[in-house]
Design a protein around this nucleic acid. Structure first.
Lengths: 104, 104
DNA sequence: TTGACATGCAGGTATTCGCCTGCATATTAT
DNA sequence: ATAATATGCAGGCGAATACCTGCATGTCAA
């Protein structure tokens, strides 16, 4: 898993919106997704390409259309291998901070 | 909470490394952190500034030193408000994808 | 007070990013 | 076959990013 690509992909509001749109209705075409985006089709294509590079979206061609599906695996892995690490220490980290801010 | 700043901050390997370093030993000075980074001090300062902007790190001045502490709250919020949404649908999303890839 | 140390600030540069326009290709419908 | 539709590809452009160097400021210790 490439944490870098995943985090970079998530670091843009348009791409997070695309994931949201696919979460509401999985398997949408490029055209369908574009209708909700307010930018040129080509820009959306680029964003979807980045999501695909990060393996957050997988595509299937059907005739002249391209269907887009969320792949939840990388997000899960990012959570498991990265976020949980800090989650485990969350309270003690918060304690460090609070103590120091109080002038400890 | 600003998901955008948080995700953008996490979208760089140096900044994730800084968080890792602070996770091992919270409250380090700029100089201490730099020793583990292999880049100019000023570059590290910029990265720490971005982490601070995203509220992922809080700092306290002590004399001529600046101490850096992890703030786990934004990461927790990003998880709660953003990642969990996909986590909830994880299995059904995986099902969609698998089914389509099989030619369903 | 003076020198060493820790950090701050200004600016410069090459690369990447996010957006665009214009044109090409592939598929479906008439 | 032809026209409409859905997507792909190439290139341009301004802004942001990630790095740097050089110098200034503030703090501690002798």
């Amino acid at each position: 898993m490439h944490a870098d690509k995943v985090f970079k992909a998530l670091g843009d509001p348009t791409r997070r919106k695309l994931l949201d749109l696919l979460c509401e209705k999985n398997g949408q075409t490029l055209g369908e997704l574009c209708e909700n985006l307010d930018m040129a089709r080509q820009s959306a294509t680029q964003h979807l390409g980045i999501l695909e590079e990060a393996n957050l979206v997988s595509t299937v061609r059907r005739g002249r259309e391209k269907l887009h599906f969320i792949n939840p695996v990388p997000l899960h892995e990012v959570y498991e291998r990265w976020v949980r690490k800090f989650e485990r220490q969350r309270l003690s980290l918060l304690h460090d901070l609070k103590k120091e801010l109080e002038g400890g």
